[in-house]
């Protein structure tokens, strides 16, 4: 048996009535301020809204009338009879204690880290593997034709040089495992400069500037192996799916999609995507390094052309955190260490 004060709303008009409520574990007895009986209701038919912060508690009577109660303890007593919302009561106790709030914050950080480090890459890998080859072809062709339109021009290299490099490319492609069909394309591009890139379908593109920069045919071995590793590991498609995953996590954190495309979310999104990109570059370098050691016993020629590329592009002055590729110095260092550990 307990008594508490409440405000009664009958649900038919907006009139508020201050009342006293008595409960004996079975029924609620509602009386006016001066003690006159108004109504009663079976406790079993009542619905108590789950607790939320320090807000007023509410009891809905079976006919839709409502009691608002300031006295949190009185309602806590009543809740003993109410087995609904067990989950929300748990949530409320999480929200009520600062220790558990700190735990939630740590849990949040941990879950986000788990998604970024393992969840998204894992799912993206699965998704990329389930893409049929025909579709990979279409996506690659589409991406390539857009590149072609915007940045690429016809190659100006002599036919003999093209044939020579292509033969070397086929030679290296023959060493690669799997039934992938690698093709080499040549384009001139003042915009993207000395560069090479691979499309998921197995097309590898080198620019005229890159070809001119190479001092010997063998310097291409590392570059080709690097690009072929991107294709073999399906880095292109995985990147697309991973970026979609980043987009979803950032939307969840910021609350909606528009905020996720806003300036505030742009920085974390960019950093995450760059981080993933660098991971793929490291993996491709590792694969290329291993291949080179097997084929020619050293990564020296690959390191040399990387160094030359970096010098030409102005010393790669962008800080490592914002560029898509790892710092060239670090790349070269990693290749050196790989070589040492292999010997």
């Amino acid at each position: 048996m307990s008594r508490f004060a409440a405000t009664l709303f009958d649900g038919k008009s907006s009139a508020a009535r201050t009342v006293n409520v008595e409960q004996d574990g079975k029924t609620l007895r509602i009386c006016g301020r001066d003690g006159d009986f108004i109504r009663s209701a079976p406790l079993g038919g009542c619905r108590i809204t789950p607790p939320l912060g320090n807000t007023r508690r509410t009891i809905y009577l079976p006919d839709g009338a409502r009691l608002d109660i300031d006295d949190q303890d009185a309602v806590a007593g009543l809740e003993l009879y109410d087995t609904k919302h067990p989950g929300m009561k748990l949530v409320h106790s999480l929200e009520s204690k600062w220790g558990l709030v700190v735990f939630s914050l740590a849990g949040l950080v941990f879950c986000v880290w788990l998604f970024i480090a393992y969840g998204i890459p894992f799912l993206a890998d699965k998704a990329a593997r389930s893409v049929p080859a025909a579709m990979t072809e279409t996506v690659s062709d589409r991406a390539f034709s857009q590149l072609d339109k915007r940045f690429l021009e016809k190659t100006e290299l002599p036919k003999s040089r093209i044939a020579e490099i292509r033969a070397y490319f086929e030679d290296i492609a023959g060493d690669m495992k799997g039934d992938l069909h690698f093709r080499l394309l040549f384009r001139k591009s003042p915009q993207i400069g000395a560069n090479a890139l691979a499309l998921p379908s197995g097309k590898v593109l080198v620019t005229d500037d890159l070809v001119k920069m190479a001092e010997s045919r063998k310097e291409f071995a590392g570059i080709f192996a690097h690009e072929m590793a991107h294709v073999q590991e399906r880095h292109g498609l995985r990147m697309v799916f991973q970026n979609a995953g980043v987009f979803f996590v950032v939307s969840a954190l910021f609350g909606d999609v528009v905020s996720a495309t806003s300036l505030g979310a742009a920085l974390p999104t960019m950093l995450l995507e760059r981080g993933y990109s660098k991971q793929f570059e490291r993996q491709a370098d590792l694969a290329a390094g291993k291949y080179l050691i097997r084929r020619m016993g050293s990564t020296k020629l690959y390191r040399r052309i990387l160094q030359r590329l970096a010098e030409k592009s102005g010393g790669n002055s962008a800080p490592s955190i914002i560029s898509t590729h790892p710092n060239v110095k670090n790349r070269i260092l990693r290749l050196k260490t790989l070589e040492k550990t292999r010997k």
Binding site: G53, V91, V101, S104, L105, C111, A252, L253
Partner: peptide, 11 residues
């Protein structure tokens, strides 16, 4: 506190 718990449980 409500916000943090919301984010944690959502993720």
């Amino acid at each position: 506190r409500i916000w943090i718990v919301n984010l944690f449980l959502t993720i």
